[in-house]
């Protein structure tokens, strides 16, 4: 067994265990952390495939940004796990049956064959993955690239449309106005003539 094979099996084993923990962990924070581990080992596998740029992007974007936000949300929301798990045992047999069947089918069909394709050649050491990706992205794939940007724009519009509410009862504060405020804006000097308080009326009763 070559060293790369060893690394592959090592990372794959961690990836599988971590993925299993994502769906079995009782605590959602633990599940999210397991997902971080799964992403990290997946990034390692990509490194083995000479996809360095993608591996680093996975770490930076998914672990660094997406999962951190995700953890924030999980910690802030008060999720009632018992309610989520209520149907677990009743659905388990059917789920196991379907899942098991799928696994058996996939092993039978896909197996350990390599799709009949030739083994990919390793690139030279000075081959720049990032440069190649950039070249293809902005020439050959510029059309889907732009469309992906439109997709993100639509996601943004949809999110704002569905969640933004203009409430009438909020009192927004403008810091600039607060800084610029003068004494005259707040205090009004009133010239009051001194006057005697009225004498209490005499009660006849």
């Amino acid at each position: 067994m070559q060293f790369t094979d060893f690394v592959f099996y090592f990372l794959s084993a961690i990836l599988l265990l971590a993925s299993l923990r994502v769906i079995t962990a009782r605590n959602p924070v633990h599940a999210a952390l397991s997902l971080v581990l799964a992403f990290f080992t997946a990034a390692g596998l990509w490194l083995l495939l000479e996809a360095e740029f993608l591996a680093i992007t996975l770490v930076l974007v998914y672990i660094g940004a997406v999962m951190v936000l995700f953890l924030f949300v999980v910690m802030m929301l008060d999720i009632n796990l018992e309610e989520l798990r209520r149907g677990f045992w009743s659905y388990l047999p059917a789920g196991l049956l379907v899942g098991g069947l799928m696994v058996v089918e996939m092993i039978m069909v896909l197996g350990s064959r390599d799709f009949g394709l030739a083994e990919p050649l390793a690139h030279a050491a000075d081959y720049s993955n990032t440069k190649e990706l950039g070249r293809v992205l902005y020439t050959e794939y510029v059309y889907p690239f732009e469309l992906a940007a439109v997709l993100l724009l639509v996601a943004m519009i949809a999110a704002i449309t569905l969640t933004h509410r203009k409430r009438a009862d909020t009192r927004p504060i403008n810091p600039a106005d607060q800084v610029k405020v003068k004494r005259a804006d707040r205090i009004r000097m009133v010239n009051l003539k001194p006057q005697k308080p009225e004498a209490p009326k005499e009660d006849d009763a």
């Binding site: 794939y141 059309y143 889907p144 469309l147 992906a148 439109v150 997709l151 639509v154 996601a155 519009i157 949809a158 449309t161 569905l162």
Partner: peptide, 20 residues
Amino acid sequence: LTLYIGLELLSLSLYALVAL
């Protein structure tokens, strides 16, 4: 790739429209 991105662009807009 374009088939899939087009489909997602359509679907995403439709999800938002349904929830409008």
